[in-house]
């Protein structure tokens, strides 16, 4: 594949958008937008919802969706916080603190994986539509988090916890490093492994994938486990940046994560999507919101602009026949294949 072909279509347009937004913001407030301070603060801000967007993306590639990512993120963070506060205690320092931080991360990942497994079983084994399964399970995860904490924030971590969300690694913000590693890893997984190929096959045509001897159940379950673990990592970053854990953090991130994935060119019917697109979409969004912030535009205007950007990109994509690869304009129906096994 030539380089030109590789970047044709949605991703190329997104790259242009990202660059245009960056240049526009740099021109509008040159001394502030391009300042080192602003650039680093952006690098600290976006990874948390970018990782959530990655989690949703993986599910959307199969034609599903994961609306429980924020619930999983908060529940994992609360379990991790319990370990950090109750067992390690705020006074823990040195190797002790590092050890407990690692243990709490491991616990968060386990929670994320179990939650994802639960979603996967609901969707792949019991045949629930993904949108409903994860809507319901998201309520359950959030509900457990509320019940565990009584709804209040958990605070008092060892100082080392802050490293995850606010630290620097070789001068680069840790959340950014984390996001870069995850994005590269998921990109590799999707394009260079058999698992990735199976995900794309299933997303493009579930029935054909089944006939091609793809173990559909196992692929779906692994996808949602992966999504749950990514959500748990996002939860740890949010916890560290907020220096607390709470059941209702980031509730606006659910739809934002879906929005970013779609903006990034991920086909909500499954089968098509590239990590580079999602990364470009996240960057455009972050440039826009930071830039607007410098221009003293109200916080609420961001939502307005994000929504407009989404619809604008969708119109451009559909006009060029690229975003709607399923041909005729049909009403969105989140996954026809599982929910009505008896009909059509």
């Amino acid at each position: 594949m030539s380089i030109a072909a590789r970047f044709a279509g949605t991703e190329a347009r997104l790259a242009v958008i990202a660059v245009v937004v960056f240049v526009a913001m740099a021109l509008l407030s040159p001394d502030r937008f391009l300042s080192v301070q602003n650039l680093t603060s952006m690098a600290f801000q976006f990874p948390e919802f970018a990782i959530l967007a990655l989690a949703t993306t993986v599910a959307m590639l199969t034609g599903g969706i994961d609306l429980s990512v924020v619930g999983i993120a908060n529940l994992s963070a609360i379990i991790a916080a319990t370990i950090l506060i109750q067992i390690a205690g705020p006074a823990a320092v040195g190797p002790d603190a590092v050890l407990w931080l690692a243990a709490s991360m491991a616990a968060a990942l386990v929670v994320g994986a179990v939650a994802g497994l639960f979603n996967g079983i609901l969707i792949a084994v019991l045949g629930l539509p993904a949108i409903l399964a994860t809507l319901g399970s998201g309520l359950i995860f959030t509900g457990i988090a509320v019940a565990l904490t009584g709804g209040s924030a958990m605070m008092g971590f060892p100082a080392a916890t802050a490293w995850l969300g606010n630290g620097l690694l070789f001068g680069v913000p840790v959340p950014l490093v984390l996001f870069a590693v995850l994005a590269l890893g998921i990109g590799f997984l999707l394009t260079r492994t058999g698992f990735g190929l199976k995900i794309q096959m299933f997303g493009t045509n579930p029935l054909a994938a089944r006939f091609a001897a793809v173990n559909v159940t196992s692929v779906l379950i692994r996808v949602y486990v992966l999504s749950g673990m990514l959500a748990a990592i996002a939860g740890m970053v949010i916890m560290s940046r907020a220096n607390s854990a709470k059941a209702d953090y980031g509730s606006s991130y659910i739809l934002l994560a879906v929005l970013i994935a779609v903006l990034g060119g991920v086909n909500p019917y499954g089968g098509y999507g590239k990590i580079i697109g999602v990364v470009l979409a996240v960057l455009s969004m972050q440039f826009l919101s930071s830039g607007l912030n410098m221009l003293q535009v109200s916080n609420f205007a961001r939502e307005l602009i994000w929504g407009s950007l989404l619809i604008f990109v969708m119109i451009v994509n559909s006009k060029t026949g690229f975003g709607m690869r399923r041909g005729k304009p049909a009403p969105a129906r989140p996954r026809p294949e599982q929910s009505s096994g008896s009909g059509r």
Binding site: P268, A301, L310, I311, M314, P329
Partner: peptide, 21 residues
């Protein structure tokens, strides 16, 4: 002919953003 979920996801942000701004 845009997918309904995506349009309404976008307009959710637009209407709310416009209202509050």
């Amino acid at each position: 002919g845009l997918p309904t979920l995506i349009v309404t996801l976008g307009t959710l942000s637009i209407f709310r953003g416009f209202l509050l701004t």
